[in-house]
Structures are given as structure tokens and as C-alpha cells.
């Protein structure tokens, strides 16, 4: 197809991606090195309070934001270099905490706390999602054709539910003396408060994520299982391979591209874990990298949004994405070159 036609087809999409993805990225990059602040000036203010016989007047120096002729705040944007990054990373505090060997103090710094949780979350949920997904797929594949449809229907429910609502619905099961907390208490015969300490909340968040994503993995694997070569399975049986050996040496190698695919998607998605923090309202104990950026972006009590700090934390989050994508992109590039 000639270039002109190609451009006409692809143009609108490219335009939207440039305007709404590439441009904001560039703007975040530049914002992270700048700070926009109102200009303050020192003025002498005389405050008088009515007293007995005479007024009491005090003169003091106050810093007041400067206004222009329309009565609006004058704001200036100035270059601060890596200042915002330093504000987010708090390297001084982090070094001090590490020097004293206090992991607790280190984890009181928002960024490192968020990074620690995001990485733990990603790495722990990944094998669980793959394992549970594969198990469900194998079991559905073994089930009789009549139950497959309904089972897939039920399995799709956790996947399709709005993430915040899904997290909330799990939250309600455990909140206070919720039904599952009560069951656990009865089972373990001790008092349990799921939302009083960080680690129980983290377990709940991971369980929620596995519940939410495992159906996706299961359906992808189930589709892959349909194309397993029956002949190689049969020859494996003739060679005396046990069920487990057939799974290990025939089925899993066949599913390998799909496992890589699910791994990639899951790494991307769980690295930006966010909805769990909202749904479990865990910000007091557990936060994630994306939530950190979000938190900088919502206005504080004075109505200010710390845009530059948000940009810095966003750029730091991006580093992880870049590291994550290097390997698959190199592979795609090699395949592309090999294909021509």
C-alpha cells in the first residue's frame, strides 16, 4: 500500500497518541525539573485591635503572594534541576536510615516504601497467577464439555469486575467482623484484625490480584491446550511417561509462548498496582508507586497539587517500565530482522 494511503489510515491514531501520550510524557519530563510557585513579597502589615481607650496596633512583616492587576496570583516557573527528584527520593534520610541499619526508618520514607511494596507485589503475584491459571486451565480442559461453558462464565466474573469494586467486595468480607474474618477467628480460635497491620493488608491485596487475574491466564492457557499435538502426547504415553512427565515435557513447552505472554502482561499490570490501595483504603499502611504519583496529584488541604514532585515520581516509576521492557523489545527486534 502506498505511503499516502497508509498515512491516511494510521494518521488519526498516531495524532491521538502523539497529542495525548507522547506530549504529556515530554511535559512530565520537563515539569520534573521545574517548579511553579506564586511570587511572594514581604510587606509590612499594621494590625490594630480595638482596646480600652486606645487601639493596640502591631506592625509586623508578612510574606504575601503578589497579585497582578486582575487580582490573580502571579506565578513563576523556575528551573530547579534535580530538586524534585531529591524531594521524592529523600536520599539523605534513606542513607541515614540504612547507615543505622534501621529498615523500619527506611520504610517510613514514602518512595522507598512504595517501591518495596510494588516490587514484592509484582514478584509474589506472578508465580501465583501463572500456577493458579495453569491449574484452572488444566482442570477445565479435563472437565466434561457440558460444564465448561458455565465454568468459564463464572471464571470471567472476577476478571471483568471493576477493579476498585472487586477490591472493595473482598474488603467487605474481611472488614471488622466480616464473614471471612469471623470464619478465620473461629478456625484459629484467636482475635484477628485484618486491617490493623501492613502485612495482612498486603496478603489481602495479593489474594485479590490473583483472584482478579488468574481467570485471564486460565483462559489464555485453556486456548493453548486445545492445540497441543495429540500425537506427541500419545507417543509420550507409549514411551511410558507419567501424567506429570507429559505435563512437564510436552504440554508446558507447548504453552511456553503463552506463558511468556501472560508474564509480560502481568508484569506490566501489577507494576502499576493502584486500585488495590483505593479499594482496601490501605494508604495508612501500604502504598504503591502509582498511588504515590496519584497522591501528589490530588490537591492538599490548601488546594495545591505538587505537580513537580508528581512528575519526578512518575519519571522514577518509568525507569522500572524501561527495565522491564528491554528484554522483550530486543527479542521482538531480532525476530523482526530475522523475518526480513
Amino acid at each position: 500500500m502506498p505511503f499516502k494511503t497508509f498515512a491516511a489510515f494510521v494518521g488519526p491514531s498516531i495524532f491521538m497518541m502523539l497529542l495525548f501520550i507522547a506530549f504529556p510524557l515530554a511535559s512530565v519530563f520537563s515539569q520534573s525539573f521545574h517548579v511553579t510557585q506564586p511570587v511572594y513579597e514581604i510587606v509590612e502589615v499594621e494590625t490594630c485591635t480595638p482596646g480600652f481607650l486606645t487601639q493596640t496596633c502591631i506592625t509586623e512583616e508578612k510574606s504575601v503572594p503578589k497579585l497582578d492587576e486582575n487580582g490573580e496570583l502571579i506565578k513563576i516557573r523556575r528551573f530547579v534541576g534535580l530538586q524534585s527528584y531529591a524531594n521524592v527520593l529523600e536520599l539523605g534520610r534513606a542513607k541515614e536510615a540504612l547507615a543505622t541499619g534501621s529498615w523500619q526508618a527506611f520504610q517510613n520514607i514514602d518512595f522507598w516504601k512504595a517501591l518495596r511494596f510494588t516490587l514484592t507485589f509484582t514478584l509474589i503475584t506472578l508465580p501465583l497467577v501463572l500456577g493458579v491459571g495453569l491449574l484452572i486451565a488444566l482442570v477445565i480442559n479435563n472437565a466434561s464439555a457440558r460444564v465448561r461453558g458455565p465454568v468459564i462464565f463464572v471464571s470471567l466474573l472476577p476478571f471483568i469486575i471493576t477493579p476498585v469494586i472487586g477490591a472493595l467486595s473482598i474488603n467487605w468480607l474481611f472488614r471488622g467482623d466480616g464473614i471471612l474474618t469471623a470464619t478465620l477467628e473461629w478456625w484459629l480460635a484467636r482475635d484477628i484484625a485484618m486491617f490493623a497491620q501492613a502485612w495482612t493488608i498486603e496478603i489481602l491485596m495479593m489474594l485479590y490480584r490473583v483472584w482478579h487475574v488468574a481467570p485471564f491466564a486460565a483462559i489464555v492457557f485453556y486456548a493453548g491446550l486445545q492445540t497441543v499435538n495429540q500425537d506427541s502426547l500419545e507417543s509420550a504415553v507409549i514411551d511410558g511417561a507419567s501424567r506429570w512427565q507429559r505435563l512437564r515435557y510436552v504440554v508446558i513447552p507447548h504453552l511456553m509462548p503463552l506463558i511468556v505472554f501472560v508474564t509480560m502482561i502481568h508484569l506490566m499490570d501489577s507494576y502499576r498496582v493502584f486500585e488495590e490501595v483505593v479499594g482496601f483504603s490501605s494508604q495508612g499502611h501500604v502504598i504503591s508507586l502509582q498511588w504515590l504519583t496519584y497522591d501528589f496529584l490530588i490537591p492538599d488541604q490548601a488546594g495545591n497539587r505538587s505537580i513537580s514532585r508528581a512528575s519526578a515520581s512518575a519519571m522514577l516509576t518509568m525507569i522500572g517500565i524501561v527495565l522491564l521492557l528491554i528484554a522483550p523489545l530486543r527479542r521482538t527486534w531480532r525476530e523482526h530482522k530475522g523475518g526480513h
Binding site: F20, P24, L25, V28, Y294, F296, L297, M318, I321, L324
Partner: peptide
């Protein structure tokens, strides 16, 4: 792969 919060920091 970009987290949406990165982009929203650019839009806001």
C-alpha cells in the same frame, strides 16, 4: 506499559 498516572501528571 506506561502507568496512567504518569500521563495524568502531564495532563493536569
Amino acid at each position: 506499559a506506561l502507568p496512567p498516572s504518569v500521563l495524568v501528571a502531564g495532563y493536569l
